[in-house]
Simulated assay, not measured.
Amino acid sequence: MKKITIYLLALLTIFSSSLLSAEKNNSDHQYNYFIGNFDFSDHKQAALLFGFQHQNESLERNTFIGKISPITGGFITENSAAYIYSGIEWNIDMGSLEFTPSFTPGLYHEGDGKDLGHVLEFKTEVQFSYVVSGDTSLGISYNHISNASLGDKNPGANSYMFNFLKTF
Results as ranks from 00 to 15, higher is better:
residue 78 E to N: 15
residue 92 I to H: 05
residue 146 S to Q: 08
residue 74 G to P: 04
residue 98 E to C: 01
residue 72 T to L: 14
residue 63 T to P: 05
residue 67 K to P: 06
residue 28 D to K: 14
residue 157 A to E: 04
residue 11 L to W: 11
residue 3 K to V: 13
residue 37 N to S: 14
residue 31 Y to D: 03
residue 68 I to S: 09
residue 81 A to D: 03
residue 110 E to T: 02
residue 91 N to L: 13
residue 47 A to P: 05
residue 143 N to I: 00
residue 61 R to Q: 13
residue 155 P to E: 07
residue 151 G to V: 05
residue 14 I to A: 11
residue 9 L to W: 09
residue 71 I to V: 13
residue 70 P to D: 05
residue 46 A to G: 11
residue 107 L to T: 05
residue 68 I to Q: 09
residue 30 Q to C: 14
residue 164 F to L: 13
residue 30 Q to V: 13
residue 124 T to H: 04
residue 68 I to R: 02
residue 9 L to Q: 11
residue 103 F to Y: 11
residue 110 E to L: 05
residue 39 D to Y: 09
residue 72 T to A: 15
residue 158 N to Q: 04
residue 69 S to G: 15
residue 21 S to H: 15
residue 154 N to A: 04
residue 160 Y to E: 07
residue 73 G to D: 08
residue 155 P to Y: 08
residue 138 L to Y: 12
residue 135 D to N: 12
residue 96 S to G: 02
residue 34 F to P: 08
residue 86 S to C: 07
residue 148 A to F: 06
residue 137 S to V: 01
residue 104 T to S: 14
residue 90 W to A: 15
residue 161 M to P: 00
residue 105 P to F: 02
residue 96 S to P: 09
residue 85 Y to S: 12
residue 141 S to L: 08
residue 104 T to D: 04
residue 149 S to M: 11
residue 118 H to V: 01
residue 164 F to S: 00
residue 76 I to V: 13
residue 143 N to D: 09
residue 125 E to S: 04
residue 123 K to G: 00
residue 74 G to H: 08
residue 115 D to V: 00
residue 162 F to E: 02
residue 12 L to C: 05
residue 41 S to C: 03
residue 17 S to Q: 08
residue 119 V to M: 08
residue 137 S to L: 05
residue 91 N to K: 15
residue 113 G to H: 02
residue 26 N to G: 14
residue 135 D to W: 10
residue 67 K to L: 13
residue 157 A to C: 03
residue 129 S to V: 00
residue 47 A to V: 06
residue 91 N to M: 07
residue 62 N to L: 11
residue 14 I to F: 15
residue 166 K to S: 11
residue 156 G to N: 01
residue 51 G to E: 05
residue 124 T to W: 05
residue 138 L to S: 07
residue 138 L to N: 06
residue 6 I to F: 11
residue 92 I to M: 10
